[in-house]
Design a binder for these strands. Sequence first.
DNA 1: TCCGTTTTGTTGAAATTTCAACACACTTTA
DNA 2: TAAAGTGTGTTGAAATTTCAACAAAACGGA
Lengths: 219, 219
Amino acid sequence: MRKFLNVLKKCPLFFDLSDNNIITMLECLEAKTDIFDKNYTILSEGTPAKYIGIVLSGSVQITRTDYYGNRSILGNLCEGELFSEAFACVQMTSMPVSAIANERSKIMFIDCSHILHTCQKDCPHHQQLVYNLMKVLALKTVMFQQKIEIISKRTTREKLLTYLTICAKKNNKNSFKIPFNRQELADYLEVDRSGLSAEISKLRKENILECKRNYFKLL
Amino acid sequence: MRKFLNVLKKCPLFFDLSDNNIITMLECLEAKTDIFDKNYTILSEGTPAKYIGIVLSGSVQITRTDYYGNRSILGNLCEGELFSEAFACVQMTSMPVSAIANERSKIMFIDCSHILHTCQKDCPHHQQLVYNLMKVLALKTVMFQQKIEIISKRTTREKLLTYLTICAKKNNKNSFKIPFNRQELADYLEVDRSGLSAEISKLRKENILECKRNYFKLL
DNA sequence: TCCGTTTTGTTGAAATTTCAACACACTTTA
DNA sequence: TAAAGTGTGTTGAAATTTCAACAAAACGGA
C-alpha cells in the first residue's frame, strides 16, 4: 500500500490528509487493490455499484455499449483519479457504464458505504474524506457538462474543435497529446471515425491545426 | 419561510431532518428567497457560482447559449429540486450555464460555503446536510449520464425514443407529460425542431406513439 | 367571439454524417 | 526480416440533419 502513497497523495479523495492519516484510513476503509491487464473489464455495466475505484497506475476508460454495439466513451482516467464514485454513492443496482483497463493497471477499491458511514474507531479525519468526496462529485458534474457541451455541437468539426480547445485550456498550451486514438476519439465525440479523420485532414489543409497521431497543435 | 416547509420537506437537501431542524438550519444558512417572473434569468452564465438554488414554486430551466445563438437545454427543475449545487461546491468563477424561470417562480438561495463549513452554533444536524448534498451531487451525475446517453444517439428518432423511454420508466407509465414544448424538446435533444416534428409525425403514422402537444404515449 | 401571438407541422434543397470498402503506414511478433 | 495486426486516411453513395419558409392549429386576452 505504502508503495502507492505518492499516488494517493495526489488523489483528490485524500486531499489535505497526512501520509499517516491516509495509511490509517485505508485500513478503516478496508481498501483492496487488484491488477488488470489491458482491455480487461474492471467494473461491468449492469452490475450493482458498491465500490469507488482509484487508478493507482495505468489508465482506465469509462464506456457504454448500446444494443447495436456502438461504443460510447464517457471519459479517460489517469493515475490518482476516481471512477464509479457517483454510482457507488447512490448504491445504484445496475451501473450504466463499464470501466475498462486501457493498459495494465493497478486499481484500488473502497467500499463507498465505509466513507458515508463513520467507522467504529471514528477516525478524526474521516470528515475530511467526506468533504473531499463531495468535491470530487462536484467536479465530475462539471466534467460531464463539458462533455455535453462538446457533443451537443451539430457538426464533427465543431465537436472536435470544442474538445481540442478544452484540452488546450487544460494543458495551458496549444500543443498537447490526447489520451485517445482515432477510433476512441470518435467514440468520445460520438461521431463516425472516417468522418472524423476526413475532418482532421481538412483542418490540417486549412492550417487550423497540426496533428500527428495523438499529438495535436492548434494554430 | 414556514409557508414553504412542505416543499422543503420534499427537497432532498433536507432529507431526514425534522420540521424544526429545517427551520433552525435555514437561519444558520442565512437562506434567502426571491421571486422571478417567467423568462427571467435567475443565475447568469459567466458569473461566479456561490449559491445553491432551490425551487420553492414554479419551475426552472438550465440552459446554455453558444456564439451562434444556439440554445442548449441541460435540464428542467420542478418544486423541491436544486440547481447550481455543483458549481457552488467548487466555487466556480464562471458558471457554464444559466438558470431561467420557466414560469413565475419562487427560489431559495443558500450560500454553499455555509453548508461546507459548519456554523458557529455548530447545529447538531449540519452533518446530515452534508450527506444529503452529497447524494444530490451523485444523483446529478447520474442524470447527466442519462442526458449523454440520449444525445450520443446518432439520429433524431433514436434520441427521441431514448428520451421518451426514460420518461416512461421514471413515470412508471407509458403515457406522460413532458416539461418541454417542441422547441425546448429539440434544444434538450440537441436537434433541429422541424426535423423533430417530422420524426414525431412519422412515429405517429407507424403507430409507435401517440402525442398531443406535451403529452406522449408509447405504444 | 375575434384577433394577434405562439406553437406545431410540412416541405424541399443544401449540407453533413454515416457506412462500407480499401489502401497505406506503422508496430509487433514470429 | 517477413508477416500479421493495428491504426489512419480516403472515397463515393446512401441516409439523415439542418435550414428557411410557410401553413395550420392552438392559445390567450380583449
